[in-house]
Nucleic acid binder design. Structure first.
Lengths: 350, 350
DNA sequence: TTGTATGCGTTATCAG
DNA sequence: CTGATAACGCATACAA
């Protein structure tokens, strides 16, 4: 690979001149500028980003750390960030944290952060204080931080509002026995006291709270055992549906409406009900959360709270870029909320 | 962030001693080793990977460049590579090329390659010669290179064999009028002459060839207009189904079996048929290709050729790591084929 | 067994 | 306007 010096030699100038000129410094003679540009083009020169960040602490690369590469929601966000960053002349690299403490620390202090000007990160196992001590001075935007006194800039999904609207929608189409699928194992819906023992799962809690608020305002009594804890994947949804179907009495399910805390759960649940001869939406209406693409192509298609990830990405990059460009500024952490809209599909059409 | 020198100062030794000791050199006194390790731990020292690759050309990071972050198949591969690399003590960063020449060149000569010991890449628009000239000496494994004289090590999916088995399966369940969905715009199924004008889409061509081979061996005449060109996404599948349904005569579709060149197409197609009152599998059987998770949770669930991406990842890393570890060795490019198995689900159950 | 010197490719400072 | 030169953090040959 051609280096700065190779270009300098070919153009007959110094390496520093090449560095300046290629980065757009205007104080050189047009003739010199031309010669250098030509030499760079001919050699196929590209600046080495590792050297650049080592020296300057900046290289135009943004890191994104996600909990899984095989989950639609985080990848939708990563894709939106990549698109939006591209329009701003930034590049993006993505790393998986595998939902593990180990993986999160790796992303924080090694791969992603060391290659990048800043980091967009949604930690699940690592606390804010730990992050503070591991990330150094590198700017970070925290996805889904609902802490009362945030330590970092954050963008959050409207989990409370979205969940509330989802359950309102179930009520509006006639559901009265409403279940909630996918709460954390440590959340006690009975007392509406939601703990956070399962890592930084504050956004789960938010969704539960929003759902309960909608029931409350409609004067619907909530049966605590209608809130089911499980992980957020297809198979967990399917299994939950099987268990619910097994609880039928006189061919009647314990629920007539089900709010799934994410879309993967909703898709799995719909499939599980189909396995058992339960009809969606006539026997039970289902609504999910996220707006992943697949939810529009299942049968029945799944109603959902569609998060506007382009908006999310834009806000995350606004926050991050402002910190990168003004590192000295120490304004208080800000929190922005992404847009969303309720999408009604077949799973609640009745 | 603490540097080598910080650790050295704290431990009262030279920077080079720290470098040696932390990477496991054994020729130091146990007492010194202990002191250095302790100092590193106390300061939370982590080696800077940018500096390391700049100096040594090695940092234990593997780059993966995929055409889309929102597509299940490439992310399944990226996730498998991340898992497998983790077990070998390597880290992975992922970059999106957005299926564009620009994006592919970026990955090649900037982000991914400059941060990594090597690259796993599936180019669509850039030719092998271009890659050769842009990547320098960095090892690369090419995914899905079917060139006659490969320039790089490659891992490929068994596109020919998998497609052949898929169509054999359709035939086995009684299909006789078999359509193929998702061929490239420039492929002429009529002449079985498959061009490659649409970038490096050789694997599309392989799948088509495999399908035609299965028809051939069963003595089934192939109607050229039963091979439909379209992109590989949900919506294209849905639209294709609508168009096929519009061609019904006497309530009979022009096809009774459909091989979709990937699973997203298959899911979209199944949904599209449902829209039009076409029943799957009784009116038309559908089989996809890839084995993405979602295909097991739709209704009907979709039969598919399930590629073993763990095997794929293992083979890709074997190739890449061997090149990284022995850069001088100039053995000819190798090509490995991933395992696969046919998964029968509801969409072909008849 | 340990330390010193050098360089990877870049940017920034300073002198001319 | 341009060019030396010194870092950035690390690894390594070589000296001690």
């Amino acid at each position: 690979m051609a280096t700065l010096r190779d270009v300098a030699a070919r153009a007959g100038v110094s390496a520093s001149a090449v560095s300046y000129i290629l980065r757009g410094d205007t104080r050189f003679q047009t003739e010199t500028v031309e010669r250098v540009r030509a030499a760079a083009r001919e050699l196929g020169y590209t600046a080495n980003l590792s050297a650049r960040i080592l020296k300057a602490g900046r290289n135009g690369v943004i890191g994104v750390a996600v909990y899984a590469l095989e989950a639609a929601q985080p990848m939708r966000l990563a894709a939106a960030i990549t698109r939006e960053a591209g329009e701003r002349g930034l590049r993006v690299i993505v790393q998986e944290t595998a939902n593990s403490r180990e993986g999160e620390l790796q992303a924080l202090e090694r791969t992603t952060s060391q290659f990048c000007d800043g980091l967009i990160f949604s930690p699940a196992k690592v606390s804010a204080e730990e992050i503070k001590s591991h990330i150094g001075t590198k700017p970070m935007v925290w996805c889904e931080d609902f802490a009362d006194e945030p330590l970092f800039d954050a963008v959050v999904t409207p989990s409370f509002e979205g969940a509330r609207d989802a359950v309102r929608h179930l009520i509006a189409v006639g559901c009265r026995r409403i279940g909630i699928l996918g709460i954390g194992a440590h959340e006690d819906a009975r007392n509406k006291a939601v703990s956070d023992a399962d890592g930084n799962s504050a956004f789960r809690a938010q969704r539960l709270r929003g759902a309960l608020a909608a029931l409350d305002e409609a004067g619907i009594e909530f049966e605590p055992d209608m809130a089911i804890a499980c992980p957020w994947d297809f198979e967990s949804g399917r299994e939950a549906a099987h268990r619910l179907a097994a609880r039928r009495t006189d061919d009647r399910l314990p629920v007539d409406g089900l709010f799934c805390l994410n879309d993967a759960l909703a898709i799995g649940t719909a499939r599980g009900f189909t396995d058992c001869g339960v009809r969606v939406p006539s026997d039970v209406a289902i609504i999910g959360f996220d707006g992943i693409l697949e939810a529009a192509y299942t049968s029945p298609s799944i109603s959902t709270v569609d998060i506007d990830y382009d908006d999310y990405a834009r806000k995350a990059l606004d926050l991050l870029v402002s910190r990168i460009e003004r590192p000295s500024e120490t304004t208080a952490p800000r929190r922005l909320v992404a847009n969303y809209r309720l999408v009604q599909r077949e799973s609640t059409a009745r």
